[in-house]
Design a protein around this nucleic acid. Structure first.
Lengths: 186, 186
DNA sequence: CTGAGAATGTGACATGATGTCGCGTGACAT
DNA sequence: ATGTCACGCGACATCATGTCACATTCTCAG
């Protein structure tokens, strides 16, 4: 299922993964390796550039929020090094402004976390004007997405419910109800 | 301040304004004319294409939400007609998904209403971005997150509302109502 | 060209969810 | 001690949602 038949079986395209989240990198790099990529990982822009300068990768997944310079400058540099590198931006702090910048700087797609490996591979294939994705993958439901997002922000706020509610622009009472309503749901 | 000294004084670059909001068109076209553009207006994609085919404009301002086909197809067609046309997308229903598409299809910038004429002119001047922009944003609000997710799926479904509602497991009526609301800013 | 099936826009209405206020409690710093 | 802040919970008016119904318009194969 996960084999890529478009390429010769023994050829693994190089992929640079730049993200400061260690566990996320582990999980994602394993998933991408399983899908046929030769993955190298960097946790900040400088390290990523070091790798890319020696051998510009064919694919790149870059997070925007990293210690030091933002992932945007990495996108720019990667494009400068090799304009054929297919770059996908993957961020937990999505905004229209950074999305526009990323695309203008050479990224071919802009995804928001949580995103699984399949979405990313799908993004690599995507071309402009053709949002014809595989209908197979069901998009996660609104409720599920909301839950993930809440959990993430809640973690950032050290489980401070009041602070989380403020950052999310929702009423504390509502957040309380949402939290206790589904301790676990697919 | 609003004079354009880069061009001969009697030369007015052509600008196509595509938006279905009549009063908005009046106001904006007046403002742009005052700033030295030769403005022509269209209220839907078909009319805009008719004008553009005869004489591809140098600049274009296109709204996304118009009766009939989306402004995205206009962006695509305009770029096909003349890749030098500087297109700015201007919409009151902004989303990351459409922003990415618009840029990939050839727009040079993506603005959200309300935007005044100065912002638009500014956008026309913009070149490839500066990657030094701030990226550390507050997380999206719950409402905003929901909006972005809906827009993404909607694009995948080629703006088919019924199909989108099915994929999201929500009632079509509910989706309609959500789409009519303006997206929350943060 | 034409009809079946699908998509869309819209209204109405019962029900469930949300926003909001308030109260009491405990933790912590001043 | 006293103010501030976070928390949980009750109550209630209001808003959003799910659901059904109906009239158009679109799409596309026959």
């Amino acid at each position: 299922m996960s084999e890529n038949n478009d390429e010769p079986l023994d050829y693994r395209p190089s992929l640079l993964l730049a993200d400061d989240d260690l566990v996320f990198c582990q999980v994602l790099s394993a998933a991408l390796t399983k899908r046929g990529f030769m993955v190298s990982v960097a946790h900040h822009v400088e390290a990523a550039l070091h790798l890319a300068t020696q051998d510009p990768p064919e694919y790149a997944v870059v997070d925007l929020k990293m210690p030091g310079p933002s992932g945007l400058v990495l996108v720019e540099k990667l494009t400068a090094l090799d304009s054929h590198t297919r770059i996908v931006v993957l961020t937990g702090y999505a905004s229209i402004a950074t999305a526009v910048e990323a695309i203008k700087l050479g990224a071919i797609h802009y995804l928001t976390k949580p995103a699984d490996a399949d979405e990313i591979v799908q993004a690599f294939r995507s071309t402009a004007g053709d949002p014809a994705m595989s209908v197979a993958d069901a998009p996660l439901s609104i409720d599920r997405l909301e839950w993930e997002h809440i959990q993430k922000v809640l973690l950032e706020c050290q489980s401070n419910i009041s602070a989380t509610a403020r950052r999310l622009g929702m009423h504390r009472r509502t957040l309380q109800r949402k939290l206790q309503k589904r301790p676990a749901h697919r």
